[in-house]
Amino acid sequence: MLTVTALAVVRTRSLFAVVTLSGVFSLLSALLFVTMDAVDVAFTEAAVGAGISTVLMLGTLALTARSERSTKRSSTVPLLAVLVTGAALVYGTLDMPSFGQSDAPAQIHVGPDYLERIPHEIGVPNAVTAILASYRGYDTLGETAVVFAAGIGVLILISGLRTRRRKDEDDPETGGSA
């Protein structure tokens, strides 16, 4: 289903439908996260991926165009590049441990160590919260800094949009396109 949605995004011309499909894709991936035991990730993805980013994209569409124009460029070169990259990645997975294997390298190092320490060191029942806020608190601080910087960037880019628009309307010769 995820694959079908992704392929539909490739084919669809109407940007409105594309954005809706990307929301569907996020929700489906959230379901997949639940089945893979990552409940925290699932509800973050459902809220952020399917909720906020869809709203942001719809806002962008309201300010820009509704549909995609057909392009004259050939699609063989990108397809070839994508196939080569995919083949390289598949070759890379051949040495990976099988899905769900409990003695995989990812499962025998810090992961179980955290699970062992959390009950008596932190005392928070949700292991993901405990690691996020406590052991990896600096990461989360850095993440907050990134979000702050992005917010400022968006504000700088968007600010004055309305005043510039009004100027365009008053004097169409000078404003707008250079």
């Binding site: 409940v39 409990s102 029942p125």
Partner: peptide, 11 residues
């Protein structure tokens, strides 16, 4: 991160 037979990491 998935382990077969495992559950969500909530104590």
């Amino acid at each position: 991160g998935k382990v077969t037979g495992g559950t969500a990491p909530i104590f």
